[in-house]
Design a protein around this nucleic acid. Sequence first.
DNA 1: AATGAATGAGAATTCATTCAT
DNA 2: TATGAATGAATTCTCATTCAT
Lengths: 192, 192, 192, 192
Amino acid sequence: MTVIKDRRMDILQAALHIFSKKGYHNAKIEDIAMEAGIAKGTIYQYFSSKQDLFQQMFRHGVERYGQSLQEIATNESHIRDKLLALAQSHGKFLEEHIGMSEIMPKESKLMSKEMRCWVLEQRDHAFSSLEEMIEQGIALGEVREDTDKGVAVLAIIGSLFAYYEKESRNKEMKFEEISPMPWVDFILRALQ
Amino acid sequence: MTVIKDRRMDILQAALHIFSKKGYHNAKIEDIAMEAGIAKGTIYQYFSSKQDLFQQMFRHGVERYGQSLQEIATNESHIRDKLLALAQSHGKFLEEHIGMSEIMPKESKLMSKEMRCWVLEQRDHAFSSLEEMIEQGIALGEVREDTDKGVAVLAIIGSLFAYYEKESRNKEMKFEEISPMPWVDFILRALQ
Amino acid sequence: MTVIKDRRMDILQAALHIFSKKGYHNAKIEDIAMEAGIAKGTIYQYFSSKQDLFQQMFRHGVERYGQSLQEIATNESHIRDKLLALAQSHGKFLEEHIGMSEIMPKESKLMSKEMRCWVLEQRDHAFSSLEEMIEQGIALGEVREDTDKGVAVLAIIGSLFAYYEKESRNKEMKFEEISPMPWVDFILRALQ
Amino acid sequence: MTVIKDRRMDILQAALHIFSKKGYHNAKIEDIAMEAGIAKGTIYQYFSSKQDLFQQMFRHGVERYGQSLQEIATNESHIRDKLLALAQSHGKFLEEHIGMSEIMPKESKLMSKEMRCWVLEQRDHAFSSLEEMIEQGIALGEVREDTDKGVAVLAIIGSLFAYYEKESRNKEMKFEEISPMPWVDFILRALQ
DNA sequence: AATGAATGAGAATTCATTCAT
DNA sequence: TATGAATGAATTCTCATTCAT
């Protein structure tokens, strides 16, 4: 069985790595090519421009994050387990996409209007999943009925990011090693 | 009475505006000069480089944010009022510094090591103030004793950012017009 | 048979020409690129900066001059023939490197400390070769025994430059056409 | 008696100092102003441009050198004393105008055509004086009759510059402290 | 006359993109 | 299809010069 190398995927991976490490403007096409083990020109066989590469990479990452989040939010387990899984998944994602959360730029050039729309849609999807999670929690009697779902979701996401960011900076540990329990406990207190 | 124009301040303001709108790399020195109503070269009379300008602007913003946060966190009022004030101050700050939260880049070139340290210090100051706020709340019986202060602070900050970001994007309103009440209520539920 | 173009050499040649004609600061990178028949950016594929280009060009020229001088000074011929060869070689060199003698600048920025050292070393090498030439002349009875070798060498070099400079300016002839005989005769009188 | 400060002279002095130290292009007008103890703008009250300042400074230096040389060359003393005086005067001049010999650039922008002509004229004057010196030496029987005056003059000047340059670089002494005797002896051997 | 803040033309350098091999 | 040398638009920064005070 031959290993079929998917050049496109190699490049996407390399782009993720380099963009995350250096940010869009400091990442050189050549860096990415080198990381992918190919020549500069080859990238243009698969992507029409640096911007295109960035957008496709971004889209790829967002999709995967959204999927994983949806799966967790809509499975059958208890709210506590879901929050736990959410946090773990977030940590794992950060491990791979380290720095990605910091490169989403406002620059209109980087994000076409459609792309921006798509990102917001994806976010809304994700938020819907999480709101559904809250609803299920309410249905199961695990979450207080008077919970403002919208705010709860924002607080969950916002504090999750802040928590991982702070923890990873203070203790020099990998994202996956960070214990999500304190965060889960805190959130649960607001929900229950 | 002559109006004394403080060129340096003008430039700092213009820089804040342009950097926020376009991001560091897409903001041209000439844009900033134009916004400040001066010529390109004049900027270099007050700042040694684009990077220097960025850092001074950034420092200026961070300092002001930190001060306002500290004042609120350590005054005499109840926890609810403090959270409210915090949110309002945040909204007001975002109004002026629109987009600033999105331009803090990972790029090591933009942030000298000392600068980075200083920023983290400032953050720690801010976090300390907020932890103190929680403690006072506990002392006053307004906050549950078993609250994990560190996590609480992270959740407060993280969810505050997320809340304002989402609200402002959905409803097209100014930051100052966003009602902080839903957020305050949610956070209080976790604390009480 | 394809003509293999050595871009690096082309650029070095062009740089020599332009720097010689205009001096370091008035020589624009674009001028040099144009002279070399390439685009501005291409120069930076071969040299890291204008300064780097200057230094490499300079080093190249100095090396060649030093080699030719050493060969002449240490061969087997009589002192008169050596002086003659020296002058001819100098003329030929000036023809190619026209103006080079006038661009060696004091500016510390143009010459790194190591480069400066290297240049002085090269000079010392050259002077040693010439002193040896004088010694051989003494050994052969062609030069007076009481000759101060150090001063003689300086006088030879200094007057050689002055001679060619003056002659070329007065009579509008090429360097190679200038007769070195009057100079040789004068120097010999000091040596014999 | 009040000391009448001649601003123009102050500036000329400062310019000489700074241009000599840094070369034309690296000398900033502000540097010169600072050295002269005045403000940048003031220079433009006395000189129409940087170039004008350079030329006037240059002219001033060349004139003084030429005068001193002429005086020495045409006085009544013996050839040996004249050469000695020449060397001493040269050393003294270098002391004041340190580096000046290295800033005369080819750049056509720095030297107007008339200026260039004038410089060459001055040189011819100087050379005439020196040729006259040789002639007097011949008349007095101190110099061989068959001396090629033109070449002799060139050799005198060329070797004088080389001698001082080398000596000053090797031994770290001031120009005035360098003994001109070895040089005088060598030149005399060629002349006698 | 003296000042020095403001100006803006001009130059070095970078790097995404092209295209001949 | 893959390459990487060549390109040149775009941007930062410098500093001689001006001019209102």
